[in-house]
Each structure stands twice: as C-alpha cells, then as structure tokens.
Write a protein that binds this DNA or RNA. Structure first.
Lengths: 366, 366
DNA sequence: TGGATTGACCGTAACGGTTCAGAACCAATT
DNA sequence: AATTGGTTCTGAACCGTTACGGTCAATCCA
C-alpha cells in the first residue's frame, strides 16, 4: 500500500481559498455544509484540496471556534496502566468507552504521574468534560478538574457537592453481606481493605484512620461493616482491620497473613475487594485452612475470577457504571441541580462462606 | 468537600489582563514562564484570576497557538470496548499507556463506529500523532489517519510504505511452531484463523482469500504455515482453514467443530490466536477428545489464560509492543526514513501438543 | 562616567478555523 | 415593474492564546 504524498505542506483553508479565488467561508462550507454551495464548486474545492495536500480543517482550530473538543477526559488516580490490570476498573472503562463511542466522542485518558503532583496534564487536556474515577477526595488532580469550566461526573468516589455522581450504595451493600455472615454465626471477624488515603500504611488501621479515610468507598464499606456488627454487640473498635496500599492478590494474601497471625481465632476474613479476597483464599490454602469449613472469606465487586473461584461476594455492575457515567456527562450539559445515579448491587452467595467452627471442632475436627 | 464557585464566567486571559492593567503577554507568562515577571505581579495575577474565576489558559487555544495537543491518538479497528476484552489488545494498550504517561502525553481513543464508515472522528481528534493498531489495510479510517499531517506508527498491521511500524515476524514465528508439529509427526492438520477481511466469512477459506487477506498478520501466519508444511510435501491447498469473524472463545470452538466435522482425521488444530485455541480446547473436551493424546491444539500470543491452560503457543511481547509504538511516535518527530521495530517471540512448548496417534491407536486405544 | 547588560513588561501578529448577516444574482410571482 | 423567494457566495468578526521582537529603566562593570 502506497502512502499518500506526505509532504509537510502548510496548506490552510485560507490558502486554499486564495488558490481557488473564493472566500474562506466557501471552503469551510465545502467541508461542513455541502448544501451551501453548488456541487460543481464543491467538487473543485475538494479536488484542489487534494492537489495542494490540504488535509481538511484543522481540528484544534475548529475546536477553538466551536468550543467543542469532541472528547471526554478520564481521570484515574492510578497509573493509566493500572486501569488495564484491575478487572473492575476495566469494566468501568469499557462501559465508558461504549457510551463515548455511541455519542461519537473520543475518550482522552489523562496521564497522571503518581510520583509528582503534576496537575498540568489536566489543564492541557482539550476535552468537553471529565469523568473522574475513584480518586481520593484530597487528590490535587481532582481539584484541577473541578477548576476547569466543563461538566464533570464522579464515579464511585469522592462525593463532591454540586457534582454529578454515579455509584452504588457501598455501605448498604456490604451491610447486607455482613448480615449474612452474622446469620451464619460469625462474631469474631477480621477485615482486609484497600488503601484509605494517599499515604502508604500497610498494616492495621485505627478507628480514626478508618473514619477519616480519603477514599469514600472504602470508608463506606468499613462503616457498613461497623453498622452490621455493631448492631449485634460486636465491639467494632476491637475488630482488626488490615490495610494494603497496593491492590493486588499478593497484598490480599499478606494482609490476611498479618490478620491471622494477630488473631488466629478469626472465623471470617472480610475483604473490601475480590482481588484482595483471592489473596485471602491463597493464604488460607497456604496455611492448610479449608474454605469455608475452617475459614470464611468474602470479597466485593463480582469480577470474573471471583466467580470462577466461587467467592462469596457482592456483585456490582461495573460496566453499567461506566456507561452511566458517560451518558450522564454527555446527556444534558448543564442542569441546575446535580444528579446522582445509584446502581443496584447483588449479593453472591458463592461457596466461601459457612458457619464458623466451634472451638471444639477447631481442635478436634468436625 | 465544597465545590468551587462554578459560574460559567467567560473570563479570558485578555479580560484578566484588562482588569489588571497589564498586557496579555504578562498574564500568559504568569502561568507559563514564572521567571519572566516579578513574583509580586505574578501573585497579583493569580489572585485576580481566582477572584474572577479564570480557570487558566484555555487548552484548545493554547494548542492552536503552540501546535501541540499533548495527546496521542489511538485507532483500533474494533469497537473501543473490544480492546478492553481481548487480552492481547489490552496488553498493547497498557504498554502504550505507559509510554504516553512517561512522556506526559494523553491517550486519545478515537471512537470508531464499526457500522458506519464514519471517518469524521479521525479528523476531529486533536492529537499530535496516531498509533494504529491492527487494522485491515483497506480500512478507511486508516486512510483518514494517513491524510492527517501528523506522525503515525502502525502496530502489527498493516504494512504501509513510509510509515513507522512495530510488530513481530509473524511468519517466522508460526513457521517455528509448525516445524515442531512436523517434527512430532503431524501431517494432517487444520487451521482456525481470525477474520481475513472486513467482510464476514464464517467458514472455510479459499487459497485466494488467504493470499489476498487484508489483515496482514493473519496472512503472514497462514503463509508461515504454508511454508512449513509445504516444505515437507503437504499439499497446502488441501489443508482446511476455517475463518471466524468474531474473535472469541466461542468462535474458536465452533470453528474447530466445523473443522473436525469436515475432516475427523485431523491430528492437530492450529489456531492463529490463543483465544481461538481456548475454544478449540473446549470443543475437544466436549467431544471427549483428550488433548494432546487424541488431538494437538496450538495457539498464538501467549496470553495469561493460555498459560493457565498449558497451551502450546507462541508468546509475543504485547506490552512491549505497545510501549515501543508509543516511544517510536514520541521519540523523533520526523526522521527521513521510516523505522521498523521487530520484537522477538518465543515458542512456548506447553502441554497441548504431542505426536499424533496412529490410525490403529485411534480405533483401538494406545 | 558611559557603555553594556539585565529584568520586567508590552504590542503586534499570527494560529486556522466558523459563523452570521448580508450582497448579488436569477427566476418566478403579483 | 416591482416584489418575493431561493440559491450561492462574501466580508468581517470572532475563538483565546502564545511567539516574536521589541522598549525602557535600573544596575553593573571597569
């Protein structure tokens, strides 16, 4: 296949018009409003354009004039590449891409260097709006996005007053799960959660840290657990909660190890994500603990791998969430009051939850 | 968290300058060249900006003036969402994102409506360059990209003269794999491949169709197989090749079924992707055929699921490919001659290939 | 002391389009 | 003959910014 002549010719709409002896308006119309000029002239314009190597109206100049970039910006808290690793984020991304595609909008992934707090990329992005996915409420990039005069939709977290949002009821969803565990008889539980703030804290979580977490989703899930277990008289402040900065199966495993080392009598490990729960399953296996006979493990999200592992978890519609975020952003440019979409979740019984063994059973077998 | 006052104020750099009684240049410098004005004045500028609700220089206007958009466009042949499903595409995407992130460039996913041949989105994308991933050589979007006066890198396919490229040696890679099968004794084989052109053809492939395939990668892989088997006297024109338009495990399964129905004596099913091969494994299982004792199955790509399944395949560095594409695009804007990066592949022995059973064994057991 | 240097700021000219209110022209209607 | 209506094309005003080449006063150096 031969490449079209690719000389860097600075042909512009104006130079084309001059060459043809017509006005710039006419050339513009040839591209954008074919009905505004005679077919014959239009043909001549396009023909001359080809001859001069004019690639058609410059998209940036057009955007400047029309105030439309034709793209949606996506801000993630993590490396871009992280989004391609985490199944839940991926589902969200897919849904968002679907929505953008449907509206003919591009999807502009904003590069975030997690090391430096370089907010410039946000200011440099030529987009008509932003979707912010799962960032901490004190993220400087978020502040930069909000300072831009374009509509914004936040997905999952954080809650920002006056900004459209799409998410789930994390607190209620995990409360429902906890209620099942309570019904099964679990009282002595441990929790493994994702990062609660921008600073790294791989270890136990104090009540204050949990309450002041900058990641609203994690805060809500912990609060939901506290609700449920508090309601049956469990002293929540004594329930061990282990935090991990990196969201990976390995993290889930090491956190579970830390938890079980600290309190071997825990009957259930409740994880705030499936990825972490898969790690918990691995650690249980490593210790020779049978799941669910010896240890109950639960997750959150409902990713495919969790399904495969038969994990007891909560399924949330990640793809739908992404799509909803996109639609919300693209639908009505500027309503007076912020909208909020709360999607439904579903408890997945799975096969990793069972009644706790009694102490006798634990020592002497069933 | 309170939202900053979000009045849609048309404050511009000029109005700010007027308010302050300084030139526009000075305001611009306050944002872009802090060393070009006194700290005191800069403070005043920023303070006034805040007061007036000026969000900082408009990215589009800046792009127009500087001729830099700060983003890389990505063109995929499929729905955007497809890219988030196919592990190989995903790996590529991740690598590309990594490269962009490293250079502080955004990644602009160009929306492609596979139904309509709507090329407008390509013309509307404000980007500094394009990466084209795995599109057919007659794709109109590709033509549109090439008509834009920005650097372009093609990944995998197609070969376009004068355009930088990154890929692997598909032909040699699959020839190496075929050579192993030949060494094991396979002579009567069948092939399952991905779509060869933009039109849907779910079924057997003629030699002409294979030779004139618009997807260079598939063409090369088929040619590589023809090379290897032709060299040992197999009449390639009689080897059944089944094509599937949709790239999915289900497609692999149904294609394999079609293949085995047509020729039950086939001893090996060679698939041009791991996804298809996973389908072949499923179909073999469904038929009660043991792999590799009763049937040899091979794939291509080296995705994680293939690894898990112990598939005999060829691993290609998809992430590295994406990263290389990004680096190539961002590195030197305009060299005189096109560059080509060919990455190494690796044969993965796996456990789904074995010597074919003889006819006796087939009927009477080993 | 006088010429060179430096720091701080400014004016103008792009950057490459789109848009909208008409002008010019012609044919058909009143 | 004047009016109307429709097509086709034009002129000029933006869109919001940054690049470039200055000016001007203060400072420095010998």
């Amino acid at each position: 296949m031969a490449r079209s002549t690719h000389v860097r010719r600075p042909a512009t709409l104006a130079s084309l018009a001059a060459e043809l002896g017509v006005s710039r308006t006419t050339v513009s119309n040839a591209y954008n409003r074919p009905d505004q000029l005679s077919p014959e002239l239009r043909r001549r314009v396009l023909e001359t354009a080809r001859r001069l190597g004019y690639p058609g109206p410059d998209p940036v100049a057009r955007s400047l004039r029309t105030r439309k970039a034709g793209a949606v910006g996506l801000l993630l808290t993590e490396n871009l590449s992280y989004a391609f690793r985490d199944p839940a984020a991926l589902g969200f991304l897919e849904g968002l891409a679907l929505a953008c595609e449907g509206a003919g909008q591009g999807l502009h992934l904003v590069p975030v260097n997690p090391e430096r707090e370089d907010v410039a990329a946000v200011h440099r992005a030529g987009v008509d709006g932003f979707v912010v996915y799962s960032v901490p409420d004190d993220d400087p990039h978020l502040a930069a996005v909000l300072s831009r005069p374009v509509p914004t939709v936040v997905a999952d977290q954080p809650h920002v007053e006056g900004v459209d949002r799409v998410g789930i009821d994390d607190r209620a969803a995990i409360t429902a799960l906890a209620t099942r565990l309570i019904a099964l008889g679990h009282r002595r539980v441990g929790v493994v959660c994702m990062r609660l703030a921008r600073d790294r804290n791989d270890g136990f979580v104090t009540v204050e840290r949990a309450d002041s977490a900058h990641f609203h989703v994690q805060r809500a899930r912990l609060a939901g657990l506290a609700d449920a277990f508090g309601a049956v008289g469990v002293d929540w402040s004594r329930v061990p909660v282990v935090e991990r900065f990196d969201h990976s199966v390995g993290s889930g495993a090491s956190a579970t190890a830390q938890l079980l080392d600290a309190d071997p009598h825990v009957t259930a490990v409740i994880c705030t994500s499936d990825i972490l729960a898969l790690g918990a399953l691995a650690e249980a296996r490593r210790r020779g603990l049978r799941v669910p006979q010896d240890l109950t493990v639960t997750g959150f999200d409902g990713i495919a791998d969790a399904d495969r592992a038969g994990l007891t978890t909560v399924r949330q519609p990640v793809l739908e969430k992404g799509r909803a975020a996109g639609k919300l952003l693209l639908a009505s440019p500027d309503p007076t009051r912020p909208r909020e979409i709360v999607l439904e979740t579903e408890f997945v019984p799975g096969a990793t939850a069972a009644p706790p063994r009694t102490a006798e059973e634990r020592w002497f077998g069933p």
